[in-house]
């Protein structure tokens, strides 16, 4: 019995698609993870730019050109969307942690609110900043 049979255990997320249909609750949770981890790329770019700002003018010009180019604009607009989605979804998790908002209907409403809210906050950020 010492040599127990090795079991190929499935790794998450093996349930979605095959056994579960996609739902607001699962999708909003997965989006939290995707946005949170994708923000690492934005953080690297932000650090690159901050470091360049302390360097030679030529270096700063080059980095600043990329950051304010069309590609830079697209990346930072997506970053803003990612930040606000993760921000709202994170606050939703804090609310869940307090034991509230866990009824299915409320949880689904909060998920949709995060998605709409992040778009609204992104537009506001683009207007204000």
């Amino acid at each position: 019995m010492a040599e127990s049979k090795r079991v190929e255990r499935p790794l998450s997320p093996f349930m979605i698609g095959q056994y579960y249909r996609p739902q607001i609750t699962s999708i909003s949770s997965i989006l939290t993870r995707i946005t949170g981890n994708a923000l690492a790329v934005s953080a690297i770019l932000a650090v690159w730019w901050l470091m360049a700002a302390t360097g030679t003018p030529e270096h700063f010009e080059a980095v600043n050109w990329f950051m304010t180019s069309f590609i830079g604009d697209v990346i930072f607009t997506l970053t803003t969307l990612g930040i606000w989605y993760h921000y709202l979804a994170g606050m939703r998790h804090l609310y869940f942690d307090s034991g509230r908002g866990l009824e299915l209907e409320t949880a689904e409403k909060l998920g949709i609110a995060c998605m709409i809210g992040s778009v609204v906050l992104t537009l506001l950020t683009i207007i204000i900043v």
């Binding site: 700063f60 950051m67 900043v129």
Partner: peptide
């Protein structure tokens, strides 16, 4: 931070510093 960084992005180097 979003406000500070967003306002500084695109400004000349001296203003960023």
């Amino acid at each position: 931070f979003v406000f500070i960084f967003g306002s500084a992005l695109g400004k000349p180097q001296a203003e960023v510093i």
